[in-house]
Structure formats: structure tokens, C-alpha cells
Amino acid sequence: MENDPDIVVRNSSSVRSQAEHLGLESPESLVVLPRNYFSADDVDELKMNQEALTIEKLLEQEGVDPDELTESNERPVTHAWSAETIGPIIHFTAEFLVENWDSVLTVIGLIESYYSTQRHSSIKFKFSVEHPDGTCKQVEYEGEPDKLEQVLDKLEVERDELMESDPDEAEATDDKETESA
């Protein structure tokens, strides 16, 4: 019998505020954040794990180019030796989440597919969405890779809330979906 994944939605610190604190530019779309992003007091403390680099490469191969907080060659890489895979924080700006839902689907699908084929029994990922007012929601996932798509339900709730708070954005998104149909 397979276990249901743990999916928790909670308020989170502002990615934009932390970027300012660290002297970095705020992400404008999608960014793969180090696991220690919110606890770092200095940009030199940021450490990407191997999983973050793998996710970035997979996204780039699919034509989804994530923002970079720092230059790739300036980021130290940590290696975790664990039975479970602990991924990075995947952060979406409100605008990206609303206007690029197909890319969000691609991100989740790539992660799910990659880790399912790697025969990982358990993965941990965090997905963050920053609203225009600076508030942030984080969706934390822990479970089997092939059930990661369940995160989409939570992200879709965030997307719907954003669209309801900005009716012009909802119309623009509806127009885009109509054009692509």
C-alpha cells in the first residue's frame, strides 16, 4: 500500500525582502532557491545542493529559463548523503504563476518524472509563491515522486486567488488560453 504524501501550505517569508537583505535583485519569474535562502544572513552563505543544479538543467532543457540570484560559477554546491532526496525551493512570482501556468505544469512534471525514473522513494520539495503585496505562501511536499502532481492543486488555489484579486490579470490570462486553444 502506498502512502499519501504530506502537503502543507503555510505563510512564508518574503523572497523579495530576503533578496534585498542579501543585496540581490528580486526574482522576476521563476527561480530555484537554495534550501538555506531564508536563513542566510549574507550572500556568501547561500549554498545550492546538487538537486537544485539538476532542476535548473532540466528546466533549461525544456526551454524554461529560471532567473539566477547569483552567477552559476559563484554558487558553492553542497552534497547531501541521505536516503531521501531534499530538493530546493522552487519560487514563482505571482505574475509568472498566473501568466505561465503551462510552465508551472512543466516544472512539476519534470521534477516528478525525473525523480520517479531515478527510483527515489521519497522526495522533499518546497514551492513558494509571492503575491504582489509581498506576502508569500509556501507549499511543502514530502512523499513519493510520482505523486508530486498533487502539489498542483495547492498552486492552482494560489493562482485562482491571484486572479480574483486582479480581474484585469484574469481577463488577460483567459484571453491567452482562448488564443492557444
Rank of each mutant, 00 (worst) to 15 (best):
52 A>Q: 01
138 Q>V: 09
19 A>Q: 06
102 D>V: 14
114 Y>M: 09
96 F>P: 00
180 S>A: 11
44 D>G: 08
161 E>T: 04
148 L>S: 00
46 L>S: 00
113 S>M: 06
65 D>S: 10
114 Y>G: 05
152 L>N: 08
151 V>I: 07
9 V>I: 09
42 D>K: 06
74 E>T: 09
17 S>D: 15
139 V>A: 03
56 E>I: 15
48 M>I: 06
162 L>G: 00
47 K>D: 10
51 E>K: 07
85 T>L: 10
29 S>K: 03
175 D>A: 15
98 V>Q: 07
100 N>C: 14
154 K>A: 12
87 G>M: 02
148 L>Q: 01
22 L>C: 03
125 F>H: 03
69 L>H: 00
39 S>Y: 02
100 N>Y: 07
162 L>Y: 01
92 F>E: 06
131 H>V: 09
128 S>V: 13
50 Q>S: 14
136 C>D: 10
33 L>R: 00
161 E>M: 01
166 D>E: 06
49 N>G: 04
122 S>K: 15
111 I>A: 01
78 T>Y: 04
70 T>K: 15
80 A>M: 14
162 L>R: 02
129 V>C: 05
121 S>K: 15
147 K>F: 11
2 E>I: 13
26 S>E: 05
135 T>N: 10
16 R>K: 14
73 N>Q: 11
36 N>C: 07
58 L>H: 08
27 P>R: 03
124 K>V: 12
165 S>N: 10
80 A>E: 15
172 A>W: 05
142 E>Q: 13
74 E>W: 09
126 K>S: 15
18 Q>S: 12
152 L>I: 15
86 I>F: 14
88 P>Y: 03
161 E>G: 02
74 E>K: 06
74 E>M: 12
3 N>I: 08
31 V>H: 00
24 L>C: 08
63 G>L: 04
107 V>S: 03
93 T>G: 11
70 T>A: 14
145 P>Q: 02
132 P>L: 02
17 S>H: 09
26 S>A: 09
80 A>V: 11
15 V>N: 01
62 E>Y: 12
44 D>W: 14
51 E>V: 07
152 L>Q: 11
162 L>W: 04
140 E>T: 06
93 T>H: 04
48 M>C: 04
53 L>K: 13
117 T>S: 08
105 L>D: 08
161 E>N: 05
148 L>F: 04
27 P>L: 02
93 T>S: 12
79 H>C: 14
85 T>G: 08
62 E>N: 15
11 N>M: 14
40 A>G: 07
29 S>I: 02
20 E>Q: 11
138 Q>A: 11
22 L>I: 06
62 E>M: 12
129 V>M: 01
102 D>M: 11
34 P>W: 00
129 V>D: 00
146 D>K: 04
90 I>N: 01
114 Y>F: 08
43 V>C: 05
120 H>A: 12
167 P>T: 06
74 E>L: 13
178 T>K: 10
94 A>K: 05
57 K>L: 11
83 A>Q: 13
176 K>W: 12
